[in-house]
Design a protein around this nucleic acid. Structure first.
Lengths: 199, 199
DNA sequence: CGCGACGTTGATTTGCCTCAACGATTGTGG
DNA sequence: CCACAATCGTTGAGGCAAATCAACGTCGCG
């Protein structure tokens, strides 16, 4: 249990970066968290299930993606350490999810159910503030990505990805980077090849 | 002033659809709102300015869009009556905006500055809850649109747009629908033509 | 060792863009 | 209220970015 408190510390630090949090608040939040290990390629959520909880990544990396009618995967989000991930649609509506979420590498997460989250919003108003803020930030990110997809070429988007997520480039298989950028793995290979030649 | 109270009523109804709101709360919020008329094609925000406030649309319709390096416009959002619109990035960071916002038709809006909003979050916690919820919903929308752009063809996206925003189809110039869908106006014309022929 | 996923490369196809021309609609100043 | 300009929507010819399909070497893993 001592060990788990250590892990929640990362979360509390994140919250305090945006708002205040008393030790009593920390205790209240802590009591609602459950720890889970998710091995590489193991699933946290399957399409059609209901996202009962959101996951705070302590270590490792998860990803969320949808599968289109032709069987192709499109990655919505990568969640490295200290990020939250869930199927937001399913989480807030408690209806069937459209997304799959699994681990890119061996990971450890802290889970918070929607029910517990809503309870906590009443008990610890500062937590609602924290989630309001990180949701605002996520929205800004999502908007920027939308506009990038509309205005930039594949090569430009890849360049930007390398700048913004320099650590992920070496960790992730290229296939998944392609699925995140919205292009085929073959085409990403050609883009990279061409970029290299220019240097 | 009586008249303005009537207009804020639409906003209060919206809030009460998600959480509670006492008459005293309404009064506190009301005192921070300012009314503004924006005529067709007039700007609410120019790229490079700072989004001091967010706008609640009482009547009419606004749109937010960015202009890429080739001079092409890409529409991020339409805001018909009872929706909020702003440049979220600029609004929360108070840095220079990347977006332009103007009126698609003669409109009337209620403005709330970021400073007043943050003050109100302390005075009226239920208002923070309201914004937390509508931001969650916006995020879900933005995510869905991202995935649609990655997995659907232009024709499929247009079909979906017609289903989701049936009222906007007749109001908006096709050019703007194209800029929202991420295709050229010429190509949208061809897509529509083809769809008609099939019926 | 052998199988399956990954990354690469090439040939071909395709969805969408570009550019240009035209009629229809809108709006605007005289 | 009309005339003229500007913008919009349509259509066609041609071009390009990215997808598709297929073949092949490599690597990690059971």
């Amino acid at each position: 249990m001592e060990e788990m408190k250590e892990k929640a510390e990362k979360l509390f630090e994140g919250i305090k970066r945006h708002t205040e949090l008393s030790p009593a608040d920390e205790e209240k939040i802590f009591s609602r968290l459950t720890r889970k290990v998710i091995k590489r390629k193991q699933f946290y959520l399957h399409e059609g299930q209901i996202a009962k909880s959101a996951a705070f990544v302590v270590s490792g990396c998860l990803r969320s993606y949808s599968i289109d009618e032709n069987g192709f995967e499109h990655i919505l989000q990568f969640a490295p350490a200290n990020w939250w991930i869930t199927d937001m649609y399913s989480f807030i509506s408690q209806k069937e999810s459209y997304l799959n979420i699994n681990a890119v590498e061996d990971s450890e997460v802290l889970l918070l159910t929607r029910v517990d989250q809503l309870d906590l919003f009443d008990e610890v108003p500062t937590l609602e503030r924290y989630f309001r803020i990180i949701t605002e930030n996520s929205l800004v990110n999502s908007h920027r990505r939308l506009l990038d997809n509309m205005s930039l070429t594949a090569k430009e988007r890849y360049g930007k990805f390398c700048q913004v997520y320099p650590t992920l480039i070496n960790t992730l298989p290229q296939k998944q980077i392609a699925q995140f950028l919205g292009i085929t793995p073959e085409f990403l290979s050609k883009v990279r090849n061409e970029s290299l030649r220019k240097k």
